[in-house]
Design a binder for these strands. Structure first.
Lengths: 224, 224
DNA sequence: AATTGTATGACAGAAATGTGTCAGAAAGTT
DNA sequence: AACTTTCTGACACATTTCTGTCATACAATT
């Protein structure tokens, strides 16, 4: 499965750990920062899929960070704050936050909002089922069905499959696939991608979906 | 896709080479200058899509260069500096810089900001869709559709197609096409352009757009 | 008609992708 | 631990597609 990384920037340690617990329970990977500066570093050095950002931090104002991130990234940002007036809310949105949670909040609320944002961004998320014609992929159990028959894929194949489905109808360059599926530190032959695509294709022959080759670029998941 | 050239003006050689490495890894072409004067020359003599400019150079102040460039060009400029006070930041922006990076910075930050600027600048079509009548070109996926049917073009054909669309209704001389699409160092027969145009035309027969020949000069993308 | 510029088809070398095989790694069993 | 099975990346070779060149045909201009 492709890991989903959530960066939480929050100075109150207890709350930080609490949030972490909830998110980990949902299967997300959590990056923790207790101040804005550290948060930045983590954001730059990792693939971050969503940011949960406290408004009041020891070093920076949450708005500043939000603005900074928005200068070069569309990663969804959820603001976290004790203040709850309408004014503040508007301010947060205008700075580019995608959602806003006021403390105190329930774990359920947090998780729901996180999922909502990820879904908006990615279309498909954990615990979702992708289906097209006779092909079905259940991301919560990583099982694949063709004509309601379970088809086995290896762990690596599932990872690639999932990534392709997440980006259906979008052409993915080999480099990008390699970075996301194999990881940034992998430095072997780039054509492992081809080999793995081939292995997946073998199992998709009867499915009404296919992986098309985009010469000179990479591959694309296409629905028939 | 058309090559993207980034001009880096930075006197610290190690940093210069480091930046080059990151950018090349992302598929950009890099022009290096270790002082302002040389930077100017490179800017004039090349098609530059973005400038990364150190604030402190042996011969000129980065602000001066920024102003100079702004006198006749909107090419995005990213300032690079060790200083980080708000004042400096404002100064940089007011002189026409589009973004600002303070040292030290992570590779990811650099690349992210470069991408953000290029995206903003190339609004015309990058990640955008060109459409006229029954013809559609999606630059983010490099896909072409005629009557909503996907038409395959080869990588080279896409490159030329894209360049023509970017300059629609403008007559492009062969020499210019050759320089931009084939690259400056290509030194084969100039008539390759004709051949490739022909191949594109074959696929455009049903489209309500066409490439017209301008005798003695070159070609022009024309909407019917 | 002569001259100049462009279109087209064929071809061969180049480049990218597909595929089978193999050996080492990882995971699972006894 | 020893063994078996599966997974996975590397690599070589086959296949497909691309692309520049060139010769010839065609069109425009004088």
């Amino acid at each position: 499965m492709i890991d989903i990384n959530i960066l939480v920037i929050e100075d109150e340690e207890k709350l930080l750990n609490l949030i972490e617990t909830y998110l980990i329970r949902e299967g997300y990977f959590v990056l923790k920062a207790s101040n804005g500066s550290r948060g930045f570093d983590l954001f730059y050095d990792n693939k971050v899929d969503l940011v949960i950002l406290d408004l009041m931090l020891p070093d920076y104002d949450g708005y500043e960070i939000c603005e900074q991130i928005r200068n070069f990234s569309d990663t969804p940002i959820i603001m976290l704050t004790a203040r709850s007036s309408i004014d503040e809310k508007l301010n947060g949105f205008s700075k580019g936050a995608d959602d806003y949670i006021t403390k105190p909040f329930s774990p359920r609320e947090l998780v729901a909002r996180v999922k909502a944002q990820l879904k908006r961004y990615n279309r498909i998320i954990k615990d979702d089922i992708y289906k097209h014609m006779n092909f079905k992929f259940d991301s919560s159990t990583s099982s694949t069905y063709i004509n309601n028959e379970n088809i086995d894929f290896s762990p690596g194949e599932i990872k690639l499959l999932y990534y392709l489905i997440l980006n259906k109808n979008i052409t993915l360059p080999r480099e990008k696939i390699l970075e996301r599926v194999w990881g940034e530190d992998y430095d072997g032959d780039i054509r492992v991608v081809d080999t793995r695509i081939k292995r997946i294709r073998e199992k998709l022959v009867c499915a009404k979906v296919r992986i098309v080759t985009v010469r000179g670029i990479g591959y694309r998941w296409e629905e028939e």
